[in-house]
Structures are given as C-alpha cells and as structure tokens.
Design a protein around this nucleic acid. Structure first.
Lengths: 159, 159
DNA sequence: TGGATATAATAAGCTAGCTTATTAATTCCG
DNA sequence: CGGAATTAATAAGCTAGCTTATTATATCCA
C-alpha cells in the first residue's frame, strides 16, 4: 500500500510549485521576464520555427495560454511570429537578436536555481528524481487522454 | 556537475504541475470544488481552529490568496470563520457538518489520483520521491528567507 | 466542386497565484 | 497612559492558468 503517500503527493506538489515559482519569478524579475515567459523563450531558443499549437502541446498548456505569453515576448522584442508559407492559419516562432544577451543571463540563472533547489541531493539521486517526475508526467498525460471507464479513442483525423 | 539536470528541473516541475492540476481539477469538479479549495479544506479538517495566517504559512501561500479560497469554502457552507475570543483581529477556521460527506468522497479521490500519478513506481521509490520533494521545498524556503548575499535576519518580534 | 468538418489562433470571462496598500486591533515602551 | 510599531485580514489590480466560443483557413468526401 502507498498509505502515507496518499496523504501528501497531490498537495506537496502544489506547495513545492508555489515556492519554486515565487523564487524563480523573483530572480527572473531582475531581467524583466517571468518564469512562464522564460519557459516559452527557452523552448523557442531550442527549436525555432515551431507552430504555436506544437509548442503548446510540448509545454502541456492550452493554446490560448500560450498566445498571451507570446504576446508579451513579442511586445518585448525577444521573439517574433512569422506566417507559415503554405498555411495561412499558422504562425511560426523565431528568436530576435535582442533575446541573445537575455538568454545568456537566464542560462546562468537556471543553473543557480537548480543548484539551490537540489542542494543536498547527490547527482545520481537528482537524476533519478527528474526521471521519476517525467514518469509521473507521462502517467498523468495518459490518464487525461484515456479517462478510466472510457475506451481509448483512436487518433482523430480530418473528415 | 548536475549537467543535464540543469536543463530540466525548473520547467519540468512547472509542466508536471500544470498536468496534475488539470487532472485533479477535472476530477474534483464532479463535487463542485477545485483542487486549490480542496487543499484548504483538507488542512482545516486535519487541524480545526487554525488562524488564517497560520494556515497560509503552512500552505506556502500569501494570506490574501487564502482569503479568497476561504471565501468560496464559506459560500458553499463547508467551513466557517469564528472570531478569536482574545484577539479580535483573528479568524479561526472550523468545519461545518455539510463538509463531511464531501470529505469522504475527496479522500477516495485523492487515493485514486495518487495511484494514477505514481503508477509504475514502487512504494519504496514513491516514498523516497516524496521525501526528496519535501527536501527541495525546504531548500527553496530557506533560499527565499535567506537570500544569498544578505545576512540571515533574526526572528522579528513586537516592538 | 462545394458543403460539412477540422484546425490555428484568438477573445471573453473565470480561478488562483502574486505585490502593494488599507483598516482595525494589538503590543511595546518611553 | 498613549504614541509608534506590528500584526491579521482584506481590497485592488496584475500574471498565468483554464473553458467555451469565434473567426479564418484548410481538408475531406459525396
């Protein structure tokens, strides 16, 4: 039995997230950016040319949530939307030069925050922790897509 | 070096939290409550008579955030505020009878959600995972209270 | 070919976080 | 005692999530 684990996993995650967000937002505010916007910027850095829907899916968020964050990143001149050449519904996202110095600073900040958060946990354990979090993510993603009691649906297609 | 861990901890936590919140909120909506309100209700169940400030501190949230959640729990008749007898600034929180059946259902739901999330992780590993998350919480709480570069301040007192 | 359906992005309005400021009550101490 | 400082709770207004609905464009198939 998971007994005592029942008591805590759901709410511990929420409390931890609240603390980490507060801490990261406070640090990132020095550079005029929030943690949520930073996450988007980091994804665009890693994979330029993504569609908004693709990015939203990768970040486990709804497209409308992403739209607002992108609005702010564009307002600050860090990224830009470019229309897709063959599908006029689609925007693709690219870095602008102004983002470069910021990205350098954020890279160092990410290391600092991670080191602070994981202090006292040895590298092997930290690695396993991350892997377990990814595993939990996968479990929850599956549960959302295939709710218990409903048969798993096939991939939807046009038509 | 933590190398690859740098890449992922901060944002993985955010993505996991988003997924779990979406999942838990969808489940809890069947009972007319949100996950955030549920967390407050569960704390009050465990420790009746808490002051709002004490509860906010335990939940790692700001008092004003808690005020709003309590408003809704009171509106629904699940808890009530009672003035402290010796300090008229203070509200203390108590369950109302109407919360009992709800709490029973939520208890089962919590087990289900935890089981879903931690599927495939054996109990010993799940236990260690929880302990590590608590440890990370402690690290971040300390970092917020004693920012690097500033000397740790003594406990503040009246006067 | 053209209507039904699907998709991409966004708008409106909600919850839940936050910071900063306000009000009422309490405590400290000169 | 009485003023200064502190604390408890809340208000106002922001960010970032969400659901539901809208608009424009693209695809499928009869």
């Amino acid at each position: 039995m998971r007994g005592s684990v029942d008591m805590n996993f759901l709410f511990t995650l929420g409390e931890l997230h609240r603390l980490v967000r507060a801490y990261a937002d406070k640090q990132a505010a020095r550079y005029g950016i929030t943690r949520a916007q930073w996450a988007v910027l980091a994804k665009v850095e890693r994979t330029e040319g993504l569609k908004q829907t693709e990015l939203a899916e990768q970040m486990e968020m709804q497209p409308i949530t992403l739209t607002r964050l992108i609005d702010k990143l564009c307002d600050n001149g860090w990224i830009e939307r470019r229309g897709d050449e063959t599908d006029r519904r689609v925007n693709r996202l690219y870095l602008r030069k102004a983002a470069r110095p910021l990205l350098g600073k954020l890279s160092g900040l990410r290391s600092d925050i991670t080191a602070t958060a994981l202090e006292g946990i040895n590298p092997a354990d930290a690695h396993r922790l991350l892997a377990q979090l990814e595993s939990v993510k996968e479990n929850v993603r599956n549960a959302i897509q295939n709710p218990a009691g409903e048969p798993p649906r096939k991939e939807q297609r046009y038509g």
